[in-house]
Write a protein that binds this DNA or RNA. Structure first.
Length: 333
DNA sequence: AAGGAGATCAACCGCCGTATT
DNA sequence: AAATACGGCGGTTGATCTCCT
C-alpha cells in the first residue's frame, strides 16, 4: 500500500543557505540529466539536501532563465494590476512576468509595493482607497450603511472569485484530459507561455490571452457560465434572496464576461447591459468596477501583445483607463 | 566608529491537490 | 477505496545588509 518512505524523515540532511559547491553539483546534475524526480535527485547528485530544497533552489535561483535585479516600472505596474485581479496567486502573476519567480514577486510585493500602496492610502488587499478614515466621525447610521455596503460588495466579490476559481480548476482538469487524448498543436502554444513554476491552467491562459485557441477560449467561457451558476446558487442558498440574488447573479455574469471576453472591445456595451440587468444600489459600484476591471484587463492585454509570446491577437485600446490609484502610484514611483 | 532599527530576500514550513501503489 | 508520496503553492522566518543616529 502506498509508496516507499520519504527521505525527508532521514536525519542529517543539510538546511540553510546553499554553498557554491552545492549549487555547482545541482546545476551540473540538472544540466546533464534534467531534474527528473526531485525526491531521488539529491542522492544521485551527491547532495545532502531534501528534494524539496533542491527544487526550490533550482526554481528560485539556479534556473538559467531567471532575471535578477531591480524591477522595472512596467513590471511594477503589472504586479499591482495583476494582484488586483488575482490576489496573492504569485505563481499566476509570475506567468505574466517572464524570467521572474513567484518568490521574487512575492518578496517584492511584501517589501515594496504593499508599503507604497498603504502609504498612499490604498488598501493593498482591495486596491481601493481606504475607507477606515470615516469610521470615527459623521452620522453613525450613514457610516454603518456605507460599511455594510462595502462589506456586502466584498462578500460578493469573494464568493464570485471562489466560484470562478472552482470552475477554472474543473476546466483545467478537463483540458488536461483533452490534451492527453488529442496530442500537441494547442498544448504547444500553451506551454510556450507557462513558466516552469506555474500551475496556471489552460483556461487561465485563455482567460488572459483571449486567443490561446478556440477550444480553450470556448472552454473558459463554459467555466465562466459554471462559475456564475455556482455564484447564483450560493447567493440563493445564503444571505441573498430574490431580487438581491438576481442582481448579484447578473453582476457576476457581467464580470465573467469582462474577465473572459478579452478579445472583444465592447466593454462599455457589456456594462450597459449589466446596468440594465441589475438594479438598485449596486449600479454605482458597477460603474467603479467598470473602469477598475477594464483597466486591469487592458493592461494584461497590452503586456501580452507587446511580449514575445504574442498570445493575443487583439488589443483593447483604452489603456489610459488605468486604475486611478495604481496610476497615481506609478507616477510616484 | 558603533550599534540599533529597519529592509531585504533566500530558504523553510505547512498545507493542499494529484498521482501512485 | 484507502494510504501514502510527490510536487507545488503561499505564508513566514531569520540571517544578512543598509541606513540612521
Amino acid at each position: 500500500m502506498g509508496r516507499s518512505p520519504c527521505c525527508e524523515k532521514e536525519a542529517g540532511l543539510k538546511k540553510g543557505p546553499w554553498t557554491p559547491e552545492e549549487d555547482q553539483k545541482l546545476l551540473a546534475y540538472i544540466e546533464q540529466h534534467g531534474h527528473g524526480c526531485w525526491r531521488s535527485l539529491p542522492t544521485k547528485a551527491g547532495l545532502r539536501r531534501c528534494g524539496k530544497s533542491c527544487r526550490l533552489r533550482w526554481t528560485n535561483y539556479l534556473r538559467p532563465d531567471i532575471k535578477r535585479g531591480k524591477f522595472t516600472l512596467q513590471e511594477e505596474q503589472t504586479i499591482i494590476q495583476l494582484h488586483a485581479l488575482l490576489g496573492n496567486r504569485w505563481s499566476a502573476i509570475a506567468t505574466h512576468l517572464p524570467k521572474r519567480t513567484d518568490n521574487e514577486i512575492k518578496n517584492y510585493w511584501n517589501t515594496h509595493l504593499k508599503k507604497r500602496l498603504t502609504k498612499m492610502g490604498i488598501d493593498p488587499v482591495t486596491h481601493k482607497p481606504r475607507v477606515d478614515s470615516d469610521a470615527g466621525g459623521g452620522g453613525a447610521a450613514a457610516g454603518t450603511g456605507a460599511r455594510s455596503r462595502a462589506a456586502a460588495h466584498l462578500s460578493h466579490t469573494a464568493q464570485w472569485e471562489s466560484a470562478r476559481l472552482e470552475a477554472e480548476a474543473r476546466l483545467a482538469r478537463e483540458a488536461k484530459l483533452r490534451a492527453l487524448a488529442s496530442p500537441p498543436q494547442t498544448t504547444a502554444a500553451a506551454s510556450g507561455v507557462d513558466s516552469p513554476t506555474s500551475t496556471l491552467s489552460f483556461s487561465e491562459s485563455a482567460l488572459f490571452g483571449g486567443s490561446a485557441g478556440p477550444d480553450f477560449h470556448g472552454a473558459a467561457r463554459a467555466a465562466a457560465v459554471q462559475a456564475v451558476q455556482s455564484y447564483g446558487e450560493a447567493c440563493q442558498e445564503h444571505h441573498f434572496g430574490g431580487a438581491a440574488a438576481e442582481t448579484s447573479f447578473a453582476a457576476a455574469g457581467t464580470l465573467a464576461g469582462v474577465l473572459l471576453d478579452c478579445s472583444v472591445t465592447g466593454a462599455d456595451q457589456r456594462f450597459a447591459a449589466r446596468t440594465e440587468a441589475g438594479s438598485g444600489e449596486l449600479q454605482g459600484e458597477d460603474e467603479d468596477d467598470k473602469g477598475y476591471w477594464n483597466s486591469i484587463l487592458n493592461m494584461v492585454n497590452s503586456s501580452m501583445s507587446s511580449s514575445s509570446s504574442s498570445l493575443t491577437s487583439e488589443v483593447v485600446t483604452d489603456a489610459e483607463m488605468f486604475l486611478p490609484a495604481a496610476a497615481t502610484a506609478a507616477a510616484e514611483f
